[in-house]
Amino acid sequence: MRVNADVYVKDVPGQLVGSLEPISMVDGNIVGVVHHHEKVMNDRIGVNITFDVDGSDQLERLKAIWKERDVTISRLGSVVETYPVEYLFIGDITPSYLERLMADASEKAGLESVDLRYSSRVQSRKKAAMMLAKVRRPEDVQIIDRFFMQECQKAGILAVRGLGQ
């Protein structure tokens, strides 16, 4: 789940770190931080933070920790829930084939933040490629799965998928 939040922290040294640290405490991942020195309210300055957390449980824990640490939440928005899809492709695959496969997959169901890694061993005809991506809807996980399985079967490629799919 990607979250964008506006928070206000006391304008004293260490407070910015104090507002970011709880994100790591709930196993979240900070994507971006903008420190608004000009945005002052009741002697507090505004900070815009974008981060990823696994789900609403972690977000609730984070909100509780911020409250304990006197971090004021003014807005919590642009919440986008995402679902991971992980595939390992094994067979006679080329980078161009993979690019085409990813483009077609994106048309079927919007793939976000695609991370594609390709094995470099040149002497083997059996190449391997790993794809880590996210989709926005749970039903897209099934759409992507059906698509990859069909395409890989046609091409004689083995698709090894993640446990949660």
Partner: peptide, 22 residues
């Protein structure tokens, strides 16, 4: 049913890079 005969060293290594096993 899909068996394990097509699993290669490259595939195992790529999974390992992502802290995964097959």
């Amino acid at each position: 049913v899909t068996g394990i005969t097509a699993i290669t060293e490259d595939a195992i290594a790529l999974a390992g890079d992502q802290n995964m096993v097959i």
